[in-house]
């Protein structure tokens, strides 16, 4: 799982061009954080801490959702899906392993976004909260990567999986309560948000950043882990179903 994941990750990001990584995954989320922090200040919706913590955790979605989607989608696009599926190893292990590097990447992005964002806006966090914040970012990133893999599984069935991932990222911005406090959102949006990654991780991270300690954040972290587990199972099931269907109809690599 680990070796396959790392190889796929290196192929995806093509490290000969680090500008793409820095521009897309580090600078972009930072400006998103600043945009909402200044908007929040102007509208007096919430303080800077709310936006810095929330958007830092949300920053992991880019790596998780797009990474997970491409983990499956690119195999099909580059004509290598057949080779992967010829492997005698478990499909579940092959594809779920892909999610691990994206989750690690998500943590890196979240840490950079939070550190630079907090420095620019003059925020400080209790030192004791840092391990807990890292844990919240890790759980959130992993849930996001499995969510991305679920969307990627749709790529075995539908032609244009980019549409799904782009719309999903936009919806996460609205429904996770990262930028609009959940008290200001309609009940049905809050309900949907509870089944999406990041919602509970952001809530836990906010508790930790406020100095409430790991015990206070543990229930939200547990819920985030459950959401992640749910998407991992769903991804495995969808991959299995769509693979079987694609073999039956001989449409495995039909774009």
């Amino acid at each position: 799982m680990a070796i396959g994941g790392v190889l796929a990750y290196r192929a995806l990001f093509n490290w000969t061009r680090p500008a793409i990584f820095v521009g897309t995954l580090l600078v972009g989320p930072l400006f998103q954080l600043l945009f909402f922090a200044y908007l929040g200040r102007q509208l007096q919706v919430a303080d800077d801490r709310f936006y810095v913590v929330g958007n830092a955790v949300l920053a992991a979605t880019l790596a998780g959702v797009f990474g997970g989607t491409l983990a499956v989608g690119n195999e099909r696009r580059y004509g290598t899906l057949g080779h992967v599926l010829l492997s005698p190893r478990s499909r579940t292990a092959v594809f779920l392993g892909r999610a691990l590097p994206y989750a690690g990447n998500g943590v890196l992005i979240a840490v950079v976004t939070m550190t630079v964002g907090a420095t620019l806006l003059g925020l400080r966090f209790p030192v004791g909260a840092i391990p807990g914040l890292l844990l919240a970012m890790a759980v959130g990133s992993l849930a996001c990567a499995f969510f991305g893999l679920t969307l990627g599984a749709l790529g075995l069935r539908f032609r244009d999986v980019w549409v799904v991932s782009n719309v999903a990222v936009a919806l996460l911005l609205l429904l996770t309560g990262v930028n609009v406090p959940s008290t200001a959102l309609p009940g049905w949006m809050v309900k949907i948000g509870e089944f999406l990654p990041i919602t509970h991780a952001a809530s836990a991270a906010r508790d930790l950043a406020a100095g409430h300690g790991l015990a206070a954040a543990a229930p939200a972290l547990g819920r985030e882990a459950l959401v992640g587990l749910g998407y991992a199972i769903l991804a495995a099931v969808l991959l299995k179903v769509f693979e079987t269907e694609s073999r039956r109809t001989a449409s495995l690599e039909t774009l």
């Binding site: 509208l43 919706v45 609205l174 930028n179 609009v180 200001a184």
Partner: peptide, 12 residues
């Protein structure tokens, strides 16, 4: 939608 809920949540 995001902008509307943000502006509603604020004082605008």
């Amino acid at each position: 939608t995001l902008a509307v809920y943000l502006f509603r949540a604020g004082h605008e």
